[in-house]
Every structure is written in structure tokens, then in C-alpha cells.
Nucleic acid binder design. Structure first.
Lengths: 374, 374
DNA sequence: TTGTAGGCGTTATCAG
DNA sequence: CTGATAACGCCTACAA
């Protein structure tokens, strides 16, 4: 109870500082987690004033603010997120919700988002889910509601699930969708904050690359129907081909499931025939590597007998033999941008952050000429 | 204010139920998030009693308990984790802390842990960190302290960092280490809850497999010095060799960094000479695939000219050409077990959960005989 | 500009 | 076994 009373006669500024300093050091010695009350007492203000300082309220005299901040720094006070959240009716947690099998993608998004979140006081809660489950929506609703999330990051493919978006709107929680940029299509574009990648453009580059190498008979392995990315990539590739008056040959198009196995199967279907294509574009690396396997099984050599392009530029792309030419997306940057959207208060612009794709040319693509058998 | 007063004359059990039912339906109609107060009012008990029911306190009459649970179920009440956390001085969050570049590993641990956590009310907060950073420890301390974590899962290699463990002990937060089982060694084993894998045993199997195929000159690519897993794997492989009176040949041992590049480099060093080994064991898949590249560069064919074994059984292992023989660890199960350790109150047994390794034989290993050049 | 009273939703204390 | 009452640490409303 060593309450320090300020002697009337000596309440010069210096004296105040001294006695306060004692109290502060006394406090630090006990090294207990400081609360807003400690700060208030030590700074000789009400806790409401401390609260104002914490929340950057403008209505605090500068002198007072400095005084408070000084104490805060000295005793190492950090407001308790739980208490704050309780009062705010909202936590300081972002939820990362996904149903996506690509580990590298998930981890990259995560680390990008966390990168941006560092120092902001927000934390990231991961929440994989099963979009085929019966209680898919209810499960997510409960998660978001119960945790009173401060924001949600949605990854493909569920970022395109309108029913899910409706739930989030209903819950009134800020959210960002990470997805492939939406091209002109039948269904209307979704107008909520999003981080979009120029998948189409990337695939256009891929098509142009193959065209430049002289390829004409080109196989295409589509992604699963219903996936925005699959649609975009197909469209982009087609656009690229169209620059030379070509287009995706229906006879040389096979739908895959973004998996190695589906790529292998598609590859066999495309290659195990006399009029096989001289090049194949697979809508992701996973499937492209499946095509590698198909080529191997058929005794075809890449890139001499067949050129292959993938999409994603996963680490594996650089490690298979031959290293895979592929479209690269800056996934980490997308994670960063997603977090940014949730953090920045003016995210209400409801705008899109756009990131572009590029082509990483490696050794899986070569000139078409060498393939002609005289 | 439609407070339902119970008419004295009609307070039969049935009447009570009826009026209560009305109030309940009335409440449900407004579909607002229910609080403990709502439950208390509707169940005609104090909120403390509701609290007791929530927390499975034994001192509640069964009848009362059922009554309360009934209301809870009907209005869909879920206690607020933030408020609960505030009162408990402890959140319902587990932290997953790691400094590990293996995306697949991270995601598998995550999904295993989340798998076990489903329905328990706990959530998982991911926290990558940089063990080389100056404020490595302080940063983690603040994270754990501020979030008042209910538990921490530590992944290799920081799961072996004693300074970090000391911090966690000091913070008095429950934690589990996921790591390779500790063999007899110089430094004393760490005696905190852990989920350990039999890396040694797995590598013994690998050695035996190569031995059985007739290999004698076997190269070994070690993991980075200081990593428990690296040490264990080496020891296990050596033990395996010793069964045939062999041991790791110092001239055929190269240290790698668990990366593709280091594997490539090690592979070149091992293979680019006349007395090259007929088989190489790399301490993880990443490096094994680097060895693939080295072999390719030197014009060696796997498995005809060289057998290769990796460790981890990452998805890539099954996709490279030829598919890689590798030691498999049930990573997801380890994640599950880690969560289990934190969830189960009797985790104080301070015991280890042990999972075993197995050998996945694919096509990268073949008989040594074929290599002899007559 | 600052402080007081009250509340956020839950649990702990200590009576009854 | 049950219930007032006071925390938990912070914020909002309303005064001063």
C-alpha cells in the first residue's frame, strides 16, 4: 500500500517525476504483467485516458499522451487482446479458411499474410474445411461467430462459393477473397474485397511461348469445372492461341482435377495416339508433372518429343527432370495483400488488389521442329 | 419486457415447462447470440449454475443440469471464448510455433492437430519465426504471454532449443515438442511432453534394404549438424549397416542442409569420381531429389547405375522419375498426437508419444550387381 | 481534455 | 447444491 502522496509544498514537476519514477521501478521489480490500471496509477491519470492513448484518440493533450506512453514503455504494458476483444465485441484474430490440397500454396499465403500482420497485434487462426461436408456453411458460421473474427481470408476454391460469402455478409465480418481475376463470363463478378491474380495473362504468355517455338498441335489439360482459376486459365490460354488464329482443339482437351493422377491420366489420353500433340499445357504443376509421368511411360522425351508447361511454379517445378517451364504467381505477395486489405481501415474501397503472373521458362519446352519425323 | 411470471396456482411442472417454452421460442425468434444470462433466465437458475454446467462441475443436481443443458441446446448457446478466457486468465488458443521450410510438413502437422482439435473449442494460431533473429526468444515470449495461449506445439528444429523451452517453462504454458526420438548421446534428453518419431529405426530399415540389394559402397548425405533428426538418422543408418559389419564410410559422407541444392552438391561430390558409391542415402527427400539431379547431370541412371533413398515420403517422392524409395513418417498422426497431448488433462504424465517410421519402397533402389562393369 | 459509472460475458469467492 | 457479488482488463456513454 505504499501509495505515494504528493506533498503540497513540493509538487514541482521534478518532484512528481521522482516519486513517479520510484513507483515505476518498484512496479518493474515485481515484474508482473501490467494492466491498464497500473499504467493509470503510475501515470496519475484515469484508466480511460490510458485507453484513449492506446486507441489513438485525438482528444488527449499531447503532454498527457507522452506521459502515458512513457509509463507504458517503461513498464512494458501491452493491452490484453482478450479483454479488449470482449469490450470491442470483436477479437484480434484473422481466420484463414480454405479447402485446398496444395500445401505450398497454403503455407505461402500464410507466411505472406503473417508477414504483413507482424506488429499489428493480429494473429492468424487457420481453419481448413471440407466444402463437400453437409455442415460446411454452418461449421464456418460458428467458427467466425464464436471467435468474433476481425477478418477472414478465403482461398480458392471456396473463395468463389457464393453461399459462403452470403454467410459472411450476414455475419458482418470483413473478408477478402484470394482468387483468379474474373474475366467476362456468364455469371456476374463478385464485388467484395479481393486479391486477384492475372491467371489469364499468365496463360496467354504460356500460349505465346509455345507458339513462338512453332507448336501447332497443343494439348490442354483443364482444371476442374467450376473452379474460377480453371476457367480463367483456359480462357487465357485460348486468347494466347488466338493471336495466331488458333484455339484450343476440343479433341486435344482433357479435364483434370488439379492432381498428379489426373494429370497422368490426361497425359496418357493425349499422348497415346499417332496424332499426339507436340506440346501440352497443364493448368497446374501437379498435373504437368503427371504429364511427365505419362510421357515417360510412353517413352517420350521432354522436351525433344514433347513440350510441357505447368502453372504455379511450385518448388517441385524446379526439381523435376527436366525443370518445368511454368507460370508463376506471387503467392506470398497475395497473402500479404490479403492481410493488408483486412488491416487497412480504408479497405472499404471494396477494391481489388491485382497481382500479375509471369512465365518462368525452364527446360521442359523446346522448338516444335525437332519433333517432325522425316 | 414480456417477462413471464409464473402464476402461483398453476405452477405444476407442466405449466413451468410451458411458460418456459414460450419464453424460449420468443428468444429464438429474435435470433441474437445467446449469453449465459439468457440461459440462466430461461432455465430459471443463476448464471453461476449455468457456468457450473458448462464447466462440468460435479456439484450440480442432475435435474438442474439437464434443465440447463436443455435450454442451452434449444437456444444454441455457446460460451464466448473471449469472456471465458478473460475470466480464466487463459485463452483457448494453441500456438503452432516453427521455423521450418518444409511446407508439406507444416501443413500435415497443422491438419493433424486441427483434426484432433475439432469440436474441443480450441483453435490453432500459427506462428512461424526466425531462430536466427536477435529477438527470437523475446518475440515468442510476447506472443505466448499476450495471447495467454492454452498450449504450444513446437516443431523441429526449434523443438530442440533449450533456451526456448526455458522461456516456455517460465511462462508456465503447456507445450509439446514434435521431434525425432532421442538416442543415447552426449547431451541429456529433454524431459518434457513430446511426440517423437523413430527416425533411427526408419533409417535402419533403409540401410538393411540397401544391404539386401547387395550394396557395399554406400554414400550418406547427412542433415545439418545440430539437428536432432540429422543425428538420429545418421545413427540409425549406421546401426543398420553395422548388422553386416559395415558403417558409414567417412569418405562417402557429406553434410547437407536438408535442401535440394545441398543435395545436388552432395550428390556431385559423391558421384563425380571413379570409385563412386552404388547407392546413396540422403537424410531427406529434398536432398535425395538433389541427388537425382546430380545423377542426371553425370549421366547416371537411377536405379541401374545408382540406388537412392530419401526420408519423409513427401508427395514429390512419388512423382519424381523414378519414384523415390523413402522412409515414411506419419506426420499427420504426429500433429494429432501433439494436439492430444495438449488437450488431455492427464498430459502431465510428461510422457512421450512414439510413432514409428516405415520404408516405402519404390523404384529408385535396385540390386547392386547390375552396376558392376565387367 | 479528462474522469465516472457501467457493461462486455464469463468465472471465483463465499455465503446460504 | 445454489446464488449474490465481485472480479477479469478493457471500452462506451455520458458528464464535468
Amino acid at each position: 500500500m505504499a501509495s505515494v502522496k504528493n506533498t503540497q509544498g513540493t509538487k514541482t514537476s521534478q518532484a512528481v517525476v521522482d516519486t513517479a519514477a520510484d513507483a515505476v521501478e518498484e512496479f518493474i521489480r515485481r515484474r508482473k504483467k501490467a494492466t491498464i490500471n497500473d499504467v493509470a496509477r503510475l501515470a496519475r491519470v484515469s484508466k480511460k485516458t490510458v485507453s484513449r492513448v492506446i486507441n489513438n484518440s485525438p482528444s488527449v493533450r499531447n503532454e498527457t499522451r507522452e506521459q502515458v506512453n512513457d509509463i507504458i514503455a517503461r513498464i512494458g504494458f501491452r493491452p490484453d487482446p482478450q479483454a479488449r476483444g470482449l469490450a470491442f465485441r470483436r477479437s484480434f484474430l484473422f481466420g484463414l479458411i480454405y479447402d485446398n490440397p496444395n500445401a505450398q500454396y497454403i503455407v505461402n499465403i500464410q507466411s505472406g499474410a503473417l508477414d504483413r500482420m507482424r506488429g499489428t497485434g493480429f494473429e492468424l487462426v487457420v481453419h481448413p474445411c471440407d466444402k463437400e461436408s453437409d455442415d460446411f456453411l454452418e461449421e464456418i458460421r460458428e467458427f467466425v461467430e464464436l471467435q468474433r473474427l476481425a477478418g477472414v481470408i478465403l482461398l480458392p476454391p471456396i473463395a468463389e462459393n457464393r453461399a459462403l460469402l452470403a454467410v459472411l455478409e450476414d455475419l458482418d465480418v470483413p473478408y477478402v477473397r484470394v482468387t483468379a481475376m474474373h474475366g467476362a463470363e456468364n455469371d456476374p463478378p463478385i464485388l467484395s474485397p479481393q486479391v486477384v491474380s492475372r491467371d489469364r495473362h499468365g496463360c496467354m504468355l504460356a500460349a505465346e511461348h509455345l507458339l513462338a517455338l512453332g507448336h501447332k498441335r497443343i494439348g490442354f489439360v483443364t482444371g476442374p469445372a467450376g473452379y474460377a482459376s480453371a476457367r480463367e486459365r483456359r480462357q487465357g490460354f485460348n486468347e494466347g492461341l488466338s493471336k495466331q488464329g488458333l484455339s484450343i482443339d476440343p479433341a486435344l482437351e482433357v479435364e483434370g482435377a488439379y492432381s498428379f493422377e489426373s494429370g497422368l491420366e490426361a497425359g496418357l489420353k493425349l499422348l497415346d495416339r499417332p496424332d499426339r500433340p507436340t506440346a501440352i499445357f497443364a493448368s497446374n504443376d501437379e498435373m504437368a508433372i503427371g504429364v511427365y509421368r505419362a510421357a515417360f511411360q510412353l517413352g517420350l522425351h521432354i522436351p525433344d518429343d514433347l513440350s510441357v508447361i505447368g502453372f504455379d511454379d511450385t518448388p517441385a517445378a524446379g526439381r523435376v527432370q527436366p525443370p518445368l517451364t511454368t507460370v508463376r504467381l506471387p503467392i506470398r505477395d497475395m497473402g500479404r495483400a490479403a492481410a493488408e486489405t483486412l488491416i487497412d481501415p480504408e479497405a472499404e474501397r471494396r477494391a481489388s488488389t491485382i497481382v500479375s503472373a509471369s512465365l518462368t521458362v525452364r527446360d521442359s519446352t523446346g522448338p516444335a521442329e525437332t519433333i517432325f519425323k522425316p
